[in-house]
């Protein structure tokens, strides 16, 4: 079955994996909105949505249905193409990131080994950075195409925030890369399985990375991009209906993906802590599924922390945000990087 010298089985296998992972991230993002409302309610001694279905579990569907049936408004003098391109780009970039995350070891089906990772590229981390840096365009194009000064200013505010925090994020990661000795995600996970989780060696790096992830996802305390009450709702002010839904939804997908990245880079990915699962002697398929479940548990924990932080900490002011990013986190991550390098050199000698 070789046509155009492509391995069609390989293509099919990857297609199935892509479909599964994308629908998984969509469903999880959907239920993160539900979890957000529930956890927010619990933290405030309320009950949260409990009318749609048992315990309100159909609430995300109701929300989505509402957004679909809302009137779609496109500003008359804005560029229609760019106005639609903005939310689409936000969604695409949010979904693209999941391609390099290792979701588990490999499945053995039909005599083929099927790694639970879409693309194990040489430059896994950099790929994530590349896609994240493109996420700015969804916001900027949407804000500009709205043909509204408030949207434009908010889009620029959001974009400069994301660019600023990308730097500190990258610098914090370099220390991890030095430990792992590779940019490949699977190698980084394997290194943690062999030598212990990176968060043990890089607690400061993890904290910096986590703060930057909050800022990248436009989450509180850094949600200036969409401050409804005091900053005029941000870049999606002119958006309505499902296009607004796309922006909001992309934020939740970003949250899911950055939780996955954090779990992979610092918390051992699909590694089961404290045990040597290879010595159990169970089938590799089952082991892969257990690893996947463990990774998911770590991701859900991070999602909970994201939500927990949102309903605890108030919003930063913009100058505080910039101060923290440029004068706080970047020097700190540089120091962390140099320290790691020095310690590694000493230990190697």
């Amino acid at each position: 079955m070789h046509l155009l010298s492509i391995d069609w089985w390989f293509l099919l296998e990857k297609l199935v994996l892509i479909m599964v992972i994308i629908s998984l991230s969509l469903v999880i993002a959907m239920y993160t909105t539900y979890a957000e409302r529930k956890v927010a309610a619990w933290l405030q001694d309320r009950r949260g949505p409990n009318r749609a279905g048992p315990w309100g579990i159909l609430q995300p569907l109701a929300d989505g249905g509402k957004l679909f049936f809302k009137e779609e408004i496109i500003p008359l003098v804005s560029s229609k193409f760019l106005f639609i391109l903005g939310p689409s780009l936000a969604m695409i970039t949010a979904l693209l990131t999941s391609a390099v995350i290792p979701w588990g070891t490999s499945l053995h089906l039909f005599g083929r080994e099927m790694p639970l990772q879409i693309a194990d590229v040489n430059i896994g981390i950099l790929y994530i950075f590349g896609v994240v840096s493109l996420g700015v365009y969804g916001i900027m194009i949407g804000g500009w195409a709205s043909n509204n000064k408030f949207s434009l200013l908010a889009a620029i505010r959001a974009a400069s925030q994301m660019i600023s925090y990308e730097l500190a994020m990258g610098l914090a990661l370099i220390a991890v890369l030095m430990l792992a000795g590779s940019l490949q995600m699977s190698v980084i996970v394997q290194n943690q399985i062999d030598h212990g989780w990176h968060v043990i060696y890089q607690p400061l790096g993890f904290v910096i990375f986590f703060i930057c992830a909050l800022a990248e996802c436009n989450r509180t305390p850094f949600d200036l991009a969409e401050a409804e009450n005091e900053l005029n709702f941000g870049y999606h002010q002119e958006y309505s209906s499902m296009k607004l839904g796309f922006y909001l939804f992309a934020e939740y997908i970003n949250m899911f993906i950055s939780s996955a990245v954090m779990a992979t880079l610092f918390f051992g990915g699909y590694d089961i802590p404290f045990v040597n699962e290879a010595s159990w002697g169970i089938s590799p398929n089952l082991l892969a599924l257990i690893g996947f479940a463990v990774l998911m548990a770590k991701i859900f924990f991070f999602l909970f922390v994201f939500i927990w932080i949102r309903w605890t900490i108030p919003r930063f002011r913009y100058d505080q945000l910039m101060n923290l990013g440029w004068k706080g986190l970047i020097p700190l991550s540089l120091a962390n990087m140099v320290l790691t390098a020095v310690v590694m050199l000493i230990l190697k000698k």
């Binding site: 956890v39 619990w42 001694d45 009950r47």
Partner: peptide, 21 residues
Amino acid sequence: NILKGMLITLRHLFKRKATIN
């Protein structure tokens, strides 16, 4: 201080809910 605040909100997670259905 952030840690203290987070602990306070966490404690509320397990409190009795004030809402009446």
